Simulated scan of single mutants.
Amino acid sequence: MTSPSRAIRADAARNQDAILAAAMEVFRDLGADAPLDEIPRRAGVGRATLYRRFPTREHLFAAILRSQVDALVEAAEIRMAAADPWQALLEWTSAYEDIGAQYRGMNTRIGTALLEDGSPIGELCTPMKTAFDVLFRRAQELARVRLDISSADVLAIISALPRDPDTGRARSTHLTVVLDGLRPATEAAAPNG
């Protein structure tokens, strides 16, 4: 027979799963600034259950993003020994873009949180920032990436780029300009005389 405490924990786990599933749906449908009251309605739980589990929007985002952040850490670690550190950097930034693009407005929130280590998202992203920093420093060392910019600056800039309203991704021309700006300009062609 199941003890009452186990039944409560199982029920709480089901509620949490329902809240997270509903939150992902709401943020996908309505964007990162969606009204939080819509989440418990779709999850079939009370508002108190939502706020007991996730006291702020940031706590909810951190729970939603946990697996994606873990995937970004792994993606950076896999690419740390890549033969082409520049290509590794480009591939990682593309994966970073994919995660932020899942929910309209999420990129901006992630970019802001990356600069605030005390926020729930900032704390969640610390291992990702560390892994990306190693990847970025390797590109600085081996792929002639500029030394006057930090990996945190790059993440903040990418997160702040204008987004395509349909895909949520940074417009390719804007992202290309940012990434191209990480490398020294090629020497200008000699003027024709």
Rank of each mutant, 00 (worst) to 15 (best):
D133C: 11
L124N: 04
G100Q: 01
N107D: 11
M128H: 08
D98E: 12
D153N: 12
D164C: 05
E141L: 15
E97D: 14
V145E: 09
L155G: 03
L72V: 02
R79Y: 00
Y96C: 09
S151H: 12
N107P: 06
S151K: 05
I78W: 03
G46F: 02
L50G: 13
R144M: 11
P165Y: 07
A160N: 08
A95Y: 02
F136H: 00
I64N: 08
D148A: 03
A160M: 09
A82M: 08
A82N: 00
W92F: 15
S94N: 13
L50P: 03
A152C: 14
D180I: 00
A131F: 04
V177M: 11
W92R: 05
A152Y: 13
A71N: 03
D166M: 13
W92M: 15
D180Y: 06
R104S: 15
Y103P: 07
E97F: 15
P120F: 01
M128D: 11
T56L: 11
R183E: 07
V69N: 09
D98S: 15
E116Q: 14
A170H: 06
T126S: 08
A81D: 15
A131N: 05
A48N: 07
Q68I: 08
S67A: 13
T130E: 14
T49L: 13
V154W: 04
M80H: 14
S67W: 03
S172F: 09
R171D: 05
M80S: 10
M106D: 04
G46P: 07
C125S: 14
G168Y: 12
F132D: 03
I157Y: 11
G46M: 02
E141C: 04
V134K: 13
R53V: 03
F54H: 09
D148M: 10
A63F: 06
D70K: 10
S94A: 15
L72F: 00
V73Y: 06
N107G: 07
G118T: 12
D133Y: 06
R163P: 09
A131V: 05
F54W: 01
L90S: 05
I64F: 09
A101N: 08
D98I: 14
T93A: 09
S119F: 02
T108M: 10
L179N: 09
E123Q: 09
E123S: 14
T130F: 11
V177R: 10
M106E: 12
E58V: 00
Y103W: 14
D148H: 08
T112L: 08
R52H: 11
S159R: 01
T167M: 08
I99A: 13
H59Y: 05
R171Y: 14
E91D: 13
D166E: 12
L60C: 07
D70Y: 05
A160E: 10
L175V: 02
L182W: 03
I121T: 09
P162Q: 06
P127F: 06
G105Y: 01
G111T: 10
A76C: 15
E123C: 07
L50Q: 04
F136M: 01
T49P: 08
A131Y: 02
S159T: 05
H174L: 12
